[in-house]
Amino acid sequence: MTPLLDVAELSKRFPVAASGSTLKNLRRRFTRAADEQSQVHAVDDVSFTIAKGETVGLVGESGCGKSTLVRALTRLLDPTAGSIRFSTRDLSLVPARDFAKDRDRGRIQMVFQDAGESINPRFTAFDAIADPVRRLKHLSGLALVETVDKAARQCGLPTELLGRYPHQLSGGQRARVGIARAIAVEPELLVLDEPTAALDVSVQVVILKLLARLKTELGMSYLFVSHDLSVVRLLCDRVLVMYLGKIVEAGPARAVFDYPLHPYTRALVAAVPRLDGIGLAKLRLSGEPMSPIDPDPNVCRFYGRCPRGADICRTQMPPLRRAAEGREVACHFAAGGA
């Protein structure tokens, strides 16, 4: 069966303002050597799939390239290389600026991290939810109102709140507006970018349950981006762990969190606070991540912070290799489910 989303060898690099001596910059200008321009490797050769009805988690620290990857997938940003196959069509061939009017625009939608910031302060809740319905489903009048009402109801948003502006809604209500807007056009893939990060635990629970219910009701697939591993564990079938632009580990969520293979995943799991206080393992990452500007393609990105760090780690980049039980890991010393 073809997966719903098939991302292959996706990369996104941003040119950076040249640092270093002015003389060097001048020479660069004269020679116009494009290859000399320094680049941030935000997403580097990333491949994964999402099956229909599947929930895939994407975890990693700030600056690891999660947001860039998500923006490339949702076609807000053009990738530098690689393909984004959705159903059977390669969406990376459509430039991001034209994608707003593409026939597949409605099939990939997104719920933003800060619901307050992602709703225009001058739009009412109704306007916010109606906008995509109007633009992408070309509905108006009664049909529009009915569609918006239905989406609001599905998200547990009372219709009498639809006339309110974002600042007149509570955090949980704003989150519901953000979700209703995304599901109103019946997408097949919903990207959730830290949808509960700004919410209190009591509200978070309600929103997570709502998301789980909507997924089965509407038959969507989720890409759930989060830094909260406890939440990812509850919601996701599979998880991708990203470190500095690369996927370092992938596999079934429970397996990855219970028996992490990659040393980075291990440190990540060990750092998650646990209610029972157990597992406060002294497994700490020292130092800072290496610079994402022009990283050496032959050095493992985790080298320098990795407790293992052997010679081979700085002469050969470990590829993402298959391990046991449908798992993948990019480490010279972890393959085979050690």
Binding site: S202, V205, V206, L208, A212, S230, R233, L234, R274
Partner: peptide, 14 residues
């Protein structure tokens, strides 16, 4: 309601 306390989403209380 703390996600860490539950084994599944259903077990999480609101």
């Amino acid at each position: 309601a703390t996600p860490d306390s539950a084994a599944s989403l259903d077990a999480l209380a609101s």
